[in-house]
Design a protein around this nucleic acid. Structure first.
Lengths: 229, 229
DNA sequence: TCAATAAGTGTTAATATTACATTTATTTGC
DNA sequence: GCAAATAAATGTAATATTAACACTTATTGA
């Protein structure tokens, strides 16, 4: 019977990735300079087409790997964009994913191939198609995620100082936080392990390094809580 | 150049709708009995294919209208499902939408055509394909939505009692709420207009009827807040 | 040794949330 | 017409959470 399966309604399905990173100062997004038409030379999110035998998640992973050389990147599906003329070449629906990676772990060469660059959110250029909206939604989602699940594991080096973690939250939420209150709240989440080691780079006194307690972190990420910052 | 636009990768894109309603007791979902293969005779979400010249939102509206006879239904895109073999007939990706409607306003005839039925969430049957997962995600999203934007306008009659509103929240959140605290919190949102009229059906004393203040309601819906219940 | 720098640390006040019980208005049955 | 029954309406006190706030400590280098 195959009711409704009309070949004419078939569409291209693309995946576009909003890749976030953190350089200890700003929250950044990785953008590529398109080297093909349409919109050649303009800034864009990294994307690609869904292939016959892969899921959207597979496609997103593949696309992320292509640009960063990294596997097992944290990512989350965001939203599917479907304006009829959003892509001038052919009817294409695009499902956006946001990913968060450790900015130091990506493969520089690959990034250079794509003429990709990290941009602070406040300095990101205008993007092609509806990519600006994709980015906007991703930022909102990321901000909201801070209140229902811990964040940072994917964005920070293995060992980090409390101040680095605070700067990360400040960058994501785009607001300043009180040092003492922040520490108290993070501690009450009980996801950090305080090391004996100190980081001496930022002060003469040195500051203790922390690691995430993987198990507790994963648990909090799965079983949502509520954190007000 | 049309890099990457390979005809072979084109897919069918479907939209499936999770339609919520409220009968003053339970939160319900509207399901249809499939009268076509595959899975003929089984319960399913109402769905359809994205057509050439419409957006996903358009498609969802069209599908909702087909089943309920209603226009301008509140709805929200949820998630796109893309397991390779999720649909046994052809590679089909499905974007799910959840909608909330006033259960008394739908068109009974249309519903009968589809052998559709309202099910309390706790009594919903198993659904075809990945529709159980779609429903699960929709419930979670609806629950979360209660804490960031007001709810009820789409689910209640124009005039309603405070108790009805409370029952609605209790049904959505699946937990009992304290009457006085509930009233205080709802009042602090400042989205209701208290009428002089009373509803006499539920008690001898009668209880005041309320309406939503459309403007304030819309404002709260747009500019999120946080409501803890 | 002192000046400079960032780290580390607790308490109090304000606000928000929860728990909780009595009175009121009206109808109906005696 | 009075009593009983029913659900509505209402406020306060206790507890928990959040926000505001400033001084001491360790260390380096001038």
């Amino acid at each position: 019977m195959n009711r409704g399966y009309n070949q004419a309604d078939k569409v291209f399905l693309a995946v576009d990735c909003i890749i976030f990173g953190f350089d200890n100062e700003d929250l950044k997004v990785l953008l590529i300079k398109r080297d093909f038409e349409p919109e050649k030379g303009k800034w864009s999110l990294m994307g690609g087409f869904l292939k016959k035998d892969e899921t959207l998640n597979d496609a997103a992973s593949r696309i992320l790997f292509k640009l960063t050389g990294m596997h097992n990147i944290y990512m989350e599906q965001l939203y599917s964009f479907s304006e009829v003329n959003r892509d001038p070449v052919a009817r294409t629906i695009s499902t956006s994913y946001y990913a968060i990676i450790n900015i130091e772990k990506h493969n520089e060469e690959l990034i250079a191939n794509y003429e990709a660059k990290w941009f602070s959110l406040s300095k990101a250029p205008h993007l092609i198609f509806d990519h600006d909206e994709m980015l906007g939604r991703a930022i909102r989602r990321l901000r909201r995620r801070t209140s229902i699940s811990p964040i940072g594991f994917e964005l920070l080096p293995e060992k980090f100082t409390m101040r680095q973690l605070q700067k990360l939250y400040e960058a994501i939420l785009d607001k300043e936080l009180d040092k003492r209150n922040f520490i108290n709240k993070i501690n009450s989440m009980d996801i950090l392990i305080k090391l004996k080691e100190k980081d001496m780079s930022s002060s003469t006194k040195g500051s203790y390094l922390f690691m995430f307690d993987q198990e507790k972190y994963d648990d909090k990420q799965t079983n949502n809580f509520y954190l007000k910052l």
